[in-house]
Amino acid sequence: MEVDRADGRAPNQRRPVACTRGILHRAHGSASWAQGDTKVIAAVYGPKAGTRKNENPEKACIEIIWKPKTGQSGKPEREYEMVMKKTLQSICLLNVHPNTTTSIVIQVVNDDGALLPCAINAACAALVDAGTPLKHLAIAICCCMSENGQILLDPSKIEEQKVKSFVYLVFPNSIASVLPEGSLKSEGEIMEHGILTSVTHGVMTVDDYFSCLKLGRPAAAELSDFIRNNLKLKPGNDSSKAA
């Protein structure tokens, strides 16, 4: 395959992923997630009593606090917080702890592209570490469209700035179930092919978007296997790196 990426990766190759859980002593759950040089630490506090204003007290409330690497958080951070909140709300079982708030603090350690997907993956691992009841996991990846129409997976910061558009996609994880295979499909669609969250930047054709989806799915399935194996390990153990 033709290789023209700065770090010599194939277009559909992810950067190595590393995940460590239970790194913070005082947090109820914590995890660090690194994709290449992008690294994010997530900490979960809660459930704490009471919900914030304007939230439904019959359900649990999720609060995201995004801390950038340097400086104050501005508009982009607010947007990240909002997308993450909506995404994580839809994977949590909110009826289990009504009228409580769970805070998820995201600390960016280093941003080298695909920051939001990295943060979502970190938050997911931290939620598992905290023992928060979840429906399933969310697996986030980033695809981008280069100028020559090639689709690149998991771009670095330099690639992200060069390309004309990029897509953040979040899928549910692949489910390993004892149930017969047909029962997991809803109307003939496999659950992990459904998009939980999609955020795009820049102009692309509709077909390009669907090509990104096609490329993203196997990558999300790989990540899903990685996270499953990682979660089987005891927290605190540094994980094996996945290529």
Binding site: K85, V167, V170, S198, T200
Partner: peptide
């Protein structure tokens, strides 16, 4: 051309 496709979570999944 697709300028944005924005779906912030939600209980329903978007299939192709």
């Amino acid at each position: 051309q697709l300028v944005s496709l924005y779906k912030p979570g939600g209980p329903a999944l978007a299939y192709e």
